[in-house]
Amino acid sequence: MADLFTHILVGYVVVTALSWRWAWISPQLVTVAMVGSTLPDLNRIDLVLPDSTVEELLSLSFSWTPLHRAGGTLVMIAVGSLLVPKRLRRGVFALLLLGVGSHYALDFLLYKPAGVTADLLWPFTGRQFVIDGFYLSSDRWPAAVATVLALGAWAVDRVVTSPKHAVKNGDG
C-alpha cells in the first residue's frame, strides 16, 4: 500500500476529472470513488484483530489478506453497491471499481526489494509481476504530489462546475 492519504487524493483527482466529461458523477459520487480507493486497505483491520486471533477463535486457517486482493475487493464493491438505492447502484459499482483500480495501479508501482509485486490479482491468478517500483508507502513525496494534483483538480472543478461556466457552455 501507498499511504492511504495518497490513494484517496489520487482517486479524487481521477474521478473529478471524469466528472467534467460525465455530469452524472456528482460530488457524492466523487466521494464514492474515494471510498473505493480506500477499500483494499481495509485489510489493516489486522492491526486491531490479527489473523492469529481469528484463527484461535474459529479454529480455522484465516487471513484478512483477500481484502487487499482483487477477489476480496470485488466482493466488497458488490456489497457496497447493494447498500445504496437501486437507482444509484450501477454508478456506485462503477465508481467503487474506479477507486479500487486507482488503488491497485499505485500499489503495482510500490518498491519491493525483490522487484516483484504481491499476488494482488488473487484468486484470479497467483502471479506476481516483475515491476521495479519507485516509491515506498513511507515516502513523503507521493502525498505531496497527490496534494498538489488534488488542489489543482479542486480549483479546475470550481471553474467547470460554476454557474457562469455552465451558462457560457449553454448548459445553464
Binding site: 484463527e55 486457517s61 487471513s63 489478506t65 486482493r69 456489497v79 488473487w122 497467483g126 502471479r127
Partner: peptide, 20 residues
C-alpha cells in the same frame, strides 16, 4: 451471500490456496 463468499476467501487464503 457475498459476505459468505468473502469469508470463504479469508479461509482459502489462510490455507494457502492458489498462492505463489
Amino acid at each position: 451471500g457475498l459476505l459468505f463468499v468473502l469469508s470463504t476467501l479469508f479461509v482459502f487464503y489462510g490455507v494457502g490456496v492458489g498462492q505463489p
